[in-house]
């Protein structure tokens, strides 16, 4: 494995860990897949569709999201929104995240 590959793999692992939190945090208002991807991208987090869509399905299967099909501009779109269970989990995840950031900031200072 080359150095570039190792670097890319580590970055991928780091990002994979934060995507769930990012997605849950952005779905207090309902979004469809593509609009969510743009919303994340506009804030600086690029997420590949191949990662985002299966993740949305998984989070829905876990009961953290809910989804509904809506017909808009003659196009059916699947809208996702955070569920009651997801809302309970989100503050705990935010706290965990803050702790991780604080520890890592100290460690890397």
């Amino acid at each position: 494995m080359t150095n570039t590959e190792s670097f890319e793999n580590v970055v991928l692992e780091l990002r994979r860990g934060v995507i769930v939190l990012a997605v849950l945090s952005q779905l207090s208002d309902e979004q469809y897949g593509y609009s969510l991807q743009k919303l994340l991208s506009d804030q600086g987090l690029e997420v590949d569709q191949g990662t985002l869509y299966p993740l949305l399905r998984r989070l829905e299967a876990q009961g953290l999201l809910e989804s509904v099909w809506k017909l808009e501009e003659a196009r059916p779109r699947r809208y996702y929104v955070i569920s009651a269970e997801g809302k309970k989990l989100l503050p705990k995840l935010k706290k965990e995240w803050a702790a991780i950031v604080s520890v890592m900031n100290k460690m890397l200072a």
Binding site: Y32, G33, Y34, Q49, Y53, R57, W69, R75, P76, R77, R78
Partner: peptide, 17 residues
């Protein structure tokens, strides 16, 4: 289950893009 759902969602995303 949900295979058709995946197809529909993919189609609508590609059309949006």
């Amino acid at each position: 289950k949900g295979r058709k759902d995946i197809e529909n969602e993919l189609r609508s995303t590609l059309e949006d893009m």
